[in-house]
């Protein structure tokens, strides 16, 4: 079943002079099994939107339906068992390494599963599996999370969410502050999780991640959904108005087309396919 937003609005500081409407009548469906990106400039409502998926925020209007759970503006309709919902929807915040607090890595990763009602030894087992999944071997289990490097800490905190075995995984800027290869490793990890059947919702500014990993993109602008599309079609359009940066490859394609070339964007995957396309268009002339 998809995650469905039905006419959802959210107002911060309601009934105060500082009231601010962060979401305006959102209607979207995030398909089960998809790798969906949510993009847009800072303050466009992306984070507010994803906070509704595991009921960290309740809508001011409308409702969000996640499988059998309902997060509605109407208190009576709301699902009471928040824990079951939060187990189902894992949320990895930006810089998640700041949520570590236990004395060993395995304990920290087991913290979530234990909160969701798993027994001590089952939670530890789930923790070990999740740690191996994120690429941290037995040597890390008993270490203190605070003595690890930045990238390793981030892996531990992500393992802490994966250990809860969520069906939906929301990740907010998971590559912020990582170097290019660290980012790639991180995203490959999410791709692996996605392949195993988890729906991934990626909140990001980085269009290269959208291009390389996502199958669908939701563009947010000023609290509204501006566009729902797929990455390649998105890069064919003018997205600078949403403060998004076209990956250089597609910027080149767009500029070349503006200068009279005739390149089919849909056939360009990388530099090599671009050059193939260029030759074809040269021959065509």
């Amino acid at each position: 079943m998809p995650v469905k937003f039905a006419d959802v609005s959210y107002v911060y500081n309601k009934k105060s002079p500082m009231a601010f409407e962060a979401l305006k009548h959102i209607n979207i469906e995030i398909k089960e099994g998809s790798f969906t990106a949510i993009v847009g400039r800072t303050g466009c409502g992306k984070s507010t939107l994803v906070s509704h998926i595991n009921a960290l925020l309740n809508p001011s209007e409308g409702e969000v339906i996640i499988d059998e759970f309902v997060n509605s503006a109407d208190k009576k309709k709301r699902t009471k068992k928040l824990k079951d919902l939060r187990k189902k929807v894992g949320l990895v915040f930006q810089f998640p390494e700041y949520q570590l607090f236990e004395e060993t890595v395995e304990k920290d990763v087991a913290f979530g599963p234990k909160n969701f009602g798993m027994k001590e030894e089952d939670a530890l087992k789930a923790a070990h599996e999740a740690l191996l999944e994120v690429g941290l071997n037995e040597g890390f289990f008993k270490r203190s999370p605070f003595e690890l490097s930045g990238g390793e800490k981030r892996r531990v905190s992500i393992a802490g969410i994966l250990a809860c075995k969520p069906n939906y995984l929301v990740v907010d800027e998971p590559t912020a502050g990582l170097d290019p290869l660290g980012s790639k490793d991180m995203m490959d990890l999410f791709e692996k999780v996605h392949q195993a059947g988890t729906t991934i919702i990626l909140v990001t500014h980085d269009m290269n991640l959208v291009l390389n990993y996502c199958d669908s993109v939701i563009v947010m602008d000023n609290g509204e959904v501006a566009k729902i599309t797929d990455p390649i079609s998105l890069f064919g359009e003018d997205i600078e108005k949403y403060s998004l940066e076209t990956p250089l490859l597609y910027k080149l394609v767009k500029d070349l087309n503006a200068k009279g070339k005739d390149i089919d964007v849909a056939k360009v995957k990388d530099i090599s396919t671009l050059l193939d396309q260029l030759r074809i268009s040269k021959e065509a002339k």
């Binding site: 906070s51 960290l56 949320l91 700041y98």
Partner: peptide, 16 residues
Amino acid sequence: EDSMRIMKAQSSRGVD
């Protein structure tokens, strides 16, 4: 702001 962020993160890990 930090504490709000951490509270949200821990809530997502099942802390009530």
